[in-house]
Amino acid sequence: MATQEKIIHVRDLVKKFGNFTANDHLNFDVYKGDIYGFLGANGAGKTTAIKILCGLSYPTSGTVEVAGLNIYKERENIKKDIGYMSQKFSLYEQLTVQENIRFYGGIYGLKKKELNEAGNHMIETLQLQNERHKIVGDLPLGWKQKLAFSIAIMHNPCIVFLDEPTGGVDPKTRRQFWELIYQAADRGITVFVTTHYMDEAEYCQRLSIMVDGRIEALGKPEDLKNEHAAGSMEEVFIKLARKQKETS
């Protein structure tokens, strides 16, 4: 569960592409063990911000620290301490479950013994014993998703970034997936979820909503709903986006 230790610290983050401001003075903190939702419509600037947080691009100005490391100076170290999973998954479809686990374990520099232990543990918790030697491409979507997430946190990163993780799966699989996320958070791994599906947002403990490059709202889902007199995050989002439309 969330503590006061800051895992992500962002102050006045600005990213410009020519005249276009993709991120306009972003300010937010993510605490250890947090499940943080980073919401916004397509094109609101989410992807730009995540690329900066993952050390894939530099901001135009502002202070950004990830896992206590400065992103200007310690990009390579940051990469070692984060996990990443996107909706398209990064699993190799033609490799077996076991081979995928080995491959990613190798990338993150796990020693053979650690790798075997982590791999066995993972297969056990996911109940994939019978699928260990099956080709990943043949697994159902929900299983792939859980496997991809488990692999993304295999090296015990400080923080894991999830990019629209549960689009299109059945509700049972989705709820099981969120159970995995809560489990990881319980282990002290910070979870950073980006999504434009507002029903996914309901599962986050804290969240921010981006509209046109700016963070328009930040807080706990309950507080945001109360503040905007809305029954769901979807309504909160619609109200914020409408407000933006009217003023612009």
Partner: peptide, 8 residues
Amino acid sequence: PTTGVDAV
């Protein structure tokens, strides 16, 4: 029709 489309 609504996959990949924002809430609004």
